[in-house]
Nucleic acid binder design. Structure first.
Lengths: 168, 168
DNA sequence: GCCACCATGTAATCGGTTACATGATTAA
DNA sequence: TTAATCATGTAACCGATTACATGGTGGC
């Protein structure tokens, strides 16, 4: 985020929430200590620039930081990929509950995915078409993927309903 | 997992790796201490059942455990949903690298998703059609979702290649 | 005899969240 | 004047991973 331009910790938090949040979140409790660590390592540099009487530290990338970034961008070690989806967990164990419960769980999942989809759409409409290719691509993927999830839930709900009536 | 039948910690680890791993992973370092905590809370009960000279503790659900499970299955608090995808992170920041890098990143992502898809397919072929509906549904979703991701990467690779040649 | 598998566990550490504390600035 | 926003930070805790340590069993 700092490589895109000089940033405060606060800036970074806002940016993350408006861009990478759906596949990589961050909290203040993570950001501020990390900024200190990165500065100790000489990868970034903080400059106090109070705005009025309000404390403010703007960070920028050092040459070392830039080359560390380039290393990471250039790839190498396998890419981390992790998902935690409690809805799916509930669905997995749904054979342990009464039959109607499964349909309710899928519906709950659908609501969750739909809410996420709405957030991503709002983001797209807010940022508009003047986005750089990188952020644009990740947003497009997020929109497509989440829409797929909503559709899957819809189809599965219908299938479960059909099966339930067939069984009668 | 214990609700599906009596299990050792080792059993649980194997099961998780063969079923929920793609949306909810667990390690020994998490499982064994958690079994102790659940027993302290009276939700499960461990019975030492050595197999030969090999130590072995089989756990089963108590009535309290069963009703705690039912509460969770019945829903309530919003479902946790978290993703960490380093490939997407790299793609997001790809405007900071040279143009060709983006294509390489998308390709790397494709390889990762394809590997995951292969694992899920192996799981399906292994377990076959005699799966209960819950596990079957989550596996189907995993397969569909991961296939969608592979397709997205393929399409995006083609799009980026086309744009690169058009620009010349 | 050896290797894959069964089986249990812990110590160190990590990455991260939650909740709190503080206070200035700006726009309605 | 008051609410939203800008801005920094920490303490307590949590959930989890990694790496290690140990040893028995079963099949080739």
């Amino acid at each position: 985020m700092i490589a895109f331009g000089r940033r405060t910790g606060y800036d970074i938090k806002q940016l993350v929430d408006r861009s990478t949040r759906h596949f990589w979140a961050a909290s203040y409790g993570q950001i501020y200590p990390e900024l200190r660590r990165l500065e100790e390592q000489g990868l970034i540099e903080g400059h106090p620039e109070p705005s009025g009487g309000r404390a403010r530290i703007v960070y920028e990338l050092t040459d070392d930081g830039r080359s560390a970034l380039d290393d990471w961008l250039g790839g190498g070690p396998p890419l981390l990929y992790e998902v935690r989806d409690e809805g799916l967990l509930r669905l997995f164990f749904s054979d342990l509950a009464d039959p109607g419960q499964r349909l309710a769980t899928v519906h709950e999942m659908r609501e969750g995915y739909a809410a996420k989809l709405a957030q991503l759409k709002a983001l797209r409409d807010l940022k508009g078409p003047e986005m750089p290719p990188g952020p644009r691509l990740t947003l497009e993927l997020g929109l497509g993927l989440t829409a797929w999830l909503v559709d899957w839930c819809d189809e599965t709900e219908r299938r479960l309903e059909r099966e339930a009536t067939d069984a009668r």
